[in-house]
Write a protein that binds this DNA or RNA. Structure first.
Lengths: 222, 222
DNA sequence: GACAAATGTAGTATTATTACTACAAATATT
DNA sequence: AATATTTGTAGTAATAATACTACATTTGTC
């Protein structure tokens, strides 16, 4: 701790992607309190994220699931394609652990919900920056019980949905019509319709109102 | 400006209510950069807000519309009941100007969307703190055009529905398809469809999910 | 009481959604 | 490895929902 010119901890480059500026501000603020000195850039759309990734190397991307232009699992691939070694910490507004598992499997290094206390956010960022995986206690538990007994008694029906199905399910709960979902995910309308059918089958429901009930019932109680 | 003991600007007390801790952090950070020195408290549920309000006087409440335990217009009354002179700045994740008008009419002093740039958030907070109303350009415009045509007082849009419309609306919130509603009410499908269209027009919505939100927001059930 | 607006009702034409069906690729199971 | 499921994707045909339009009653207003 003497020589100014020798940096034992090289500056880390972090990209914070969220469409809410206060969230970016909060996250940047937390980052500024980390032991690791870091330079933060901010993006508010997924396109901006891509632009940044093509212009400069980053150590970590903190990515809001709901970012405009993104909002799907393919985001992970799109990011890793540009920078295979970047760390990705998903940052989500929903407590839905469901998403967590899917994104982790798709290659994310961590999944953090926005209502997590400040300390947890800080520790999640450090953890992922240090090349480790981060998972909230709840997510970890869910993953374990999932690996453990595959025939658990009371299973969360939402967890039986596949990645794509969860994406569509989420959009459906926002009241977005099938045609527009197809558009957003670059799929045929009939494809989305197939997902919808499968979702309804798996959850044993027959309309959006029931879908909202199910989601409320099984996702809030985390 | 010499005497330490004379405070020309007394400390303001601000309560930031949002279930996302980063948002609270970001807002607190912005507040700390204001000219007005302020003491910030944080709440993450509406119950906590009430508890705070009953314990201590606040100058300003920054309130997330979607806060757990709240999420409806009655929040305003609940707050003003405890502290009639408190200023309220609504902070919302949705851009929906619809909500804005409703909350302003219900007594809020400002309505701010979360994705607003930092400067706008800062200025909104100052504005409301200084006893003025804050509105985004878009909201202002909408409000004006609304006042122009007809200045009806705080109106519950649900109460503008006719008898038949209410019947259909109710069935719709149960997730019952149009065809079956027609059956139940012994009407033609197209008739029910017409009601549905009129309901959606009156409530300014475009799908069932939004219908449920409206009903939740305005139903006195809470 | 006259005229305007709101309400209850429905038809036609168009658009959106769903039911089936299919099939390759990825996973899981034996 | 061989076989069975699940998942991601989409086409065709059928069904449901909507946009417009229309019109006779109420209901409200000057």
């Amino acid at each position: 701790m003497g020589l100014k010119s020798i940096e034992p901890f090289p500056m880390k480059a972090i990209l914070v992607a969220d469409d809410h500026s206060i969230v970016r501000l909060g996250v940047s603020h937390i980052i500024s309190t980390l032991a690791t000195p870091s330079a933060v850039e901010e993006a508010s759309t997924f396109d901006e994220v891509i632009t940044y990734l093509e212009a400069k190397r980053f150590d970590l991307l903190i990515l809001d699931i709901n970012i405009p232009g993104g909002n799907n699992l393919q985001m992970i691939d799109a990011v890793k394609l540009r920078q295979p070694n970047i760390r990705i910490l998903m940052f989500s507004g929903y407590d839905e652990q469901l998403f967590a598992i899917n994104y982790m499997q798709a290659g994310a290094d961590g999944y953090l919900v926005k209502y997590s206390p400040e300390d947890e956010i800080r520790s999640a960022i450090s953890t992922v920056l240090n090349q480790q995986k981060y998972m909230s206690a709840g997510t970890k538990e869910q993953l374990l019980s999932m690996l453990n007994s595959q025939r658990e008694p009371v299973m969360n029906p939402l967890s039986t949905l596949s990645g794509r199905e969860v994406e569509v399910m989420y959009l459906l709960t926002k009241g977005i019509p099938v045609a527009r979902i197809a558009d957003m995910l670059n799929l045929q309308v009939t494809t989305v319709s197939t997902y919808k059918t499968r979702i309804f089958e798996k959850l044993q429901i027959s309309n959006i109102v029931e879908l909202l009930e199910k989601v409320k019932m099984y996702s809030t109680a985390n």
